[in-house]
């Protein structure tokens, strides 16, 4: 892997456009994620957040530049993006529902399929330490897990591939508050262990609390950005995500 000059971002997205047919879902988005950072993208339903992640992952064709660890990703197949250390946990989790927890995890390390199996076993042992609940359930089918356990499995499966940048799409979706807290605790623990994270969330307050930097996406464009702590106190963002001020949309659109 190429070493990059310190300070250069791990992920750099410039002027990204994504269109479904004639409808543009993401327009002119610029975004950076530095090494060891948590960067969050917040915004309402339909703002283009999931589209943005899909384009970075290579699931959707996009125009504009995507640079990762100093190399251009445009046109790179998904498999090779994963090989370079990108990982995405989609909103649906995309677990292999009829397969066991252990098989799900093993497949998470598929990108190391040329390496000896015991390396995968070692990573799996680490995951079981991080998520003891999964160890208890390792022979169960993924479809039998509760919502929180599924999110843990999706996270653990992504980590099995030892990503440099982990992209999470709505990790708190449909989870009880206690579990949401747990998920966010794990996300900040991951950052501390050196994984950079791009976090898409509707749960704005939680996301802003854990993130270093944040972007607000509205109607496919970046409507605001800044250090997460600043955005959290920005009256426009408070208005938007407390939803008490009907004027916020106009102001954000300016």
């Amino acid at each position: 892997m190429t070493t990059i000059a310190s300070g250069a971002p791990l992920l750099q997205v410039d002027a990204l456009n994504v269109a479904y047919g004639k409808i543009e879902a993401v327009t002119g988005v610029n975004l950076k994620v530095g090494e060891g950072q948590i960067v969050t993208v917040i915004g309402p339903n339909g703002a283009g957040k999931t589209t943005l992640l899909s384009a970075i992952m290579g699931l959707l064709p996009a125009t504009g530049a995507i640079g990762f660890a100093g190399a251009a990703l445009n046109g790179t197949p998904i498999k090779d993006r994963i090989g370079q250390g990108l990982a995405l946990v989609p909103e649906t989790r995309a677990l292999f529902s009829s397969m066991s927890v252990e098989n799900n995890l093993e497949l998470g390390a598929f990108r190391f399929h040329h390496r000896p199996a015991r390396e995968r076993q070692a990573t799996m042992a680490e995951m079981y330490t991080l998520f003891p609940r999964l160890k208890e359930r390792r022979t169960q089918r993924a479809s039998t897990l509760s919502g929180g356990e599924r999110q843990m499995l999706a996270l653990a499966r992504a980590l099995m591939g030892k990503p440099r940048l982990l992209m999470l799409d709505e990790p708190s979706l449909g989870l009880a508050p206690l579990i949401v807290r747990e998920v966010f605790r794990i996300i900040s623990a991951l950052r501390d262990s050196g994984v950079s994270i791009l976090l898409v969330e509707q749960n704005a307050r939680a996301a802003l609390k854990v993130a270093d930097y944040a972007y607000v996406l509205e109607l496919g464009r970046v409507a605001a950005e800044g250090p997460a702590a600043e955005l959290a106190t920005d009256p426009r963002v408070i208005a938007a995500y407390l939803g008490m001020n009907s004027k916020h949309q106009e102001r954000l659109a300016q």
């Binding site: 708190s172 508050p177 949401v180 807290r181 966010f184 749960n203 854990v210 407390l242 939803g243």
Partner: peptide
Amino acid sequence: VQANPVVLEAYLGGA
């Protein structure tokens, strides 16, 4: 409903 703390918690809470 807007002023209801339970609602605010549901929409924003958890952290």
